[in-house]
């Protein structure tokens, strides 16, 4: 197997995620797209981790960082959904292009 297989898969997922973040209006769907981006990063991390582990048996940094990212993602989703909920409660809508009170 080539390292590039995984890296390219991750790149594709990442770009799909970016598209989702930019194109979606619904707050929950934006958060889902962000999850796609984070997963792409994780695939990268684990792939590189496996690559290094093959050379150095004691090195599992890739996995460790992937775990950290998962934990951060969990926190992010928690707070993100809380925000979406708050927006919904205040405006009866979760369209994030309505939330533009900071415009100049």
């Amino acid at each position: 197997m080539f390292l590039n297989q995984f890296l390219l898969l991750a790149a594709i997922l990442f770009c799909i995620g970016v598209y989702g973040v930019l194109a979606r209006k619904n707050g929950v769907l934006v958060l889902m797209s962000i999850e796609l981006i984070l997963n792409a990063v994780n695939i990268n991390l684990v792939a590189f981790g496996a690559y290094w582990h093959a050379n150095d048996m004691a090195n599992v940094s890739g996995q460790v960082f992937a775990l950290f990212v998962i934990a951060v993602a969990a926190a992010e989703v928690g707070v993100g959904l809380a925000l979406v909920l708050l927006i919904y409660r205040n405006r009866q809508s979760i369209d994030i292009d309505d939330v533009d009170m900071l415009k100049g």
């Binding site: 197997m1 080539f2 390292l3 590039n4 890296l7 390219l8 790149a11 594709i12 990442f14 770009c15 970016v18 496996a50 690559y51 582990h53 093959a54 050379n55 048996m57």
Partner: peptide, 22 residues
């Protein structure tokens, strides 16, 4: 973004293989 990343990945890692996956 995808084009850019694919270009640099293919350019950078070419045929790098996983060694003996443990």
């Amino acid at each position: 973004l995808l084009g850019l990343m694919s270009y640099s990945l293919i350019d950078g890692f070419k045929d790098t293989e996983f060694g003996n996956l443990m």
